[in-house]
Amino acid sequence: MNIQRFQAEVLPLKDKLFRLALRITLNREDAQDIVQETMLRVWDARERWETIESMEAFCITICRNQALDFVKKANRRDVSLEEEAPQSAIADVSPHEQMVRGEGIRLVRQAMDRLPEVQRSIMELRDMEGKSYEEIGLLLGLGESQVKVYLHRARKKIKAIIEQIEHYGL
């Protein structure tokens, strides 16, 4: 019974949790380990499942705390993911332009990774997971207005980076 519920409600959250953990650790392998540990912790807490209002929020909170603990211990911050942009996103342009555009995207991604952790996590939850300000506030233990302030700062920095790339080149 619990196994079925775990497979139906917890396992499908793996990608979401992975993105969130990656946004904090900035390292794929560490993020994967954190998601695995999160899943096991959620399983170990199965006696409490009935009292949990939202399984997703429960998993996200555990994952985030795990990732923050990890970063605190390992003191690994501001490490670039160095992921390559897939061909589909920069198709039908010349190789030179493709390289320039790909480089632009890489720089924006790098700028996103260099944001303070709370701003990175809020951007992730809002822009990639489509969460409302209220939901983000509950997950991060912040007020809605605080969430907006952090997100505003994050978007402002990204906008500045984009305009800098545009005006001064790569």
Binding site: R19, A89, I90, I165
Partner: peptide
């Protein structure tokens, strides 16, 4: 220019699995 950010975010959703 602003497309970069949306593409970067979209790529993250698609590739980080």
């Amino acid at each position: 220019p602003y497309r970069k950010m949306f593409v970067a975010e979209q790529e993250s959703v698609e590739n980080v699995r």
